[in-house]
Design a protein around this nucleic acid. Structure first.
Length: 229
DNA sequence: TCATTAAGTATGC
DNA sequence: GCATACTTAATGA
């Protein structure tokens, strides 16, 4: 296998402050892998043997309810660590990680987490910062579920997705992975019918455009106005 | 204000 | 041509 290039990690926050030699050491211990859309990288409750860096794609974090339903917990954009159970003091994964589209990852044995934290400047801070951002996002969603109307929650969810994974296209910002109305309804505690109805309405009003499994926000500001109610 | 039901059309392997 | 994605209207909690 060819050696991985140092430029892969150079601009990614947990590694940004490291010297080339340190990045080389880290890469030499990494296992690269490609996943197809829908593949599970790891599953909830399984022993947390490795932690991951998402090089490309989007990860959909799913939790299973007591009745066996899968609900979308959050999405993780490219460039972030995930499956970092060791940072949470756990030895099993707290959720299942599905690939929302095609994904490229690097992974390391979880036993290296403590070594990385001890040896590499800035690695620990970035890891815990990542955890903090995710916790606050989940809190924001819990607040929304309790206090906002469906229309506001769906607008908020779309804004979060374009902020995290959006890529510029002509006429707007497109959510960078395949997403269905069913997916959006699961993220917002709604139904696919309500999401469909709202997207159709917003399309008429020039706020979004969509086709099968693709959503583009054309007027983010008006979506913000809707989200804030 | 929304979910649910129902009955359709559109899309892509 | 089949399964999946999506739309729309009607009904009622």
């Amino acid at each position: 296998m060819p050696k991985l290039d140092e430029s892969l990690l150079r601009d990614i926050p947990p590694f940004r402050r490291l010297e080339t030699r340190a990045i080389r050491e880290i890469l030499d211990q990494a296992v690269p892998r490609r996943f197809d859309a829908g593949d599970a990288v790891f599953r909830e409750g399984h022993e947390a043997t490795r932690f991951y860096l998402l090089l490309d794609g989007t990860i959909r974090v799913m939790r299973t309810t007591p009745t066996g339903e899968q609900v979308i917990s959050l999405h993780i954009p490219a460039g972030q660590l995930f499956g970092i159970a060791a940072a949470l003091g756990r030895d099993t994964y707290p959720a299942t990680a599905h690939c929302a589209g095609e994904c490229l990852t690097l992974s390391w044995p979880m036993s290296l987490w403590q070594a990385f934290v001890a040896r590499y400047d800035g690695f620990a801070e970035e890891g815990y910062k990542t955890v903090g951002v995710r916790v606050s996002e989940m809190n924001q969603r819990i607040m929304e579920l309790a206090t906002r109307r469906v229309e506001q929650r769906i607008a908020g969810a779309l804004l979060r997705l374009v902020n995290q994974t959006g890529r510029k296209v002509e006429g707007g910002i497109e959510i960078a992975f395949p997403i269905t109305r069913q997916d959006i309804s699961e993220m917002t505690g709604s139904t696919l019918h309500t999401v469909s109805r709202l997207l159709s309405q917003w399309e008429k009003e020039g706020i979004v455009t969509s086709r099968r499994k693709h959503v583009t926000v054309t007027d983010p500001h008006r979506l913000v106005v809707i989200a804030e109610g």
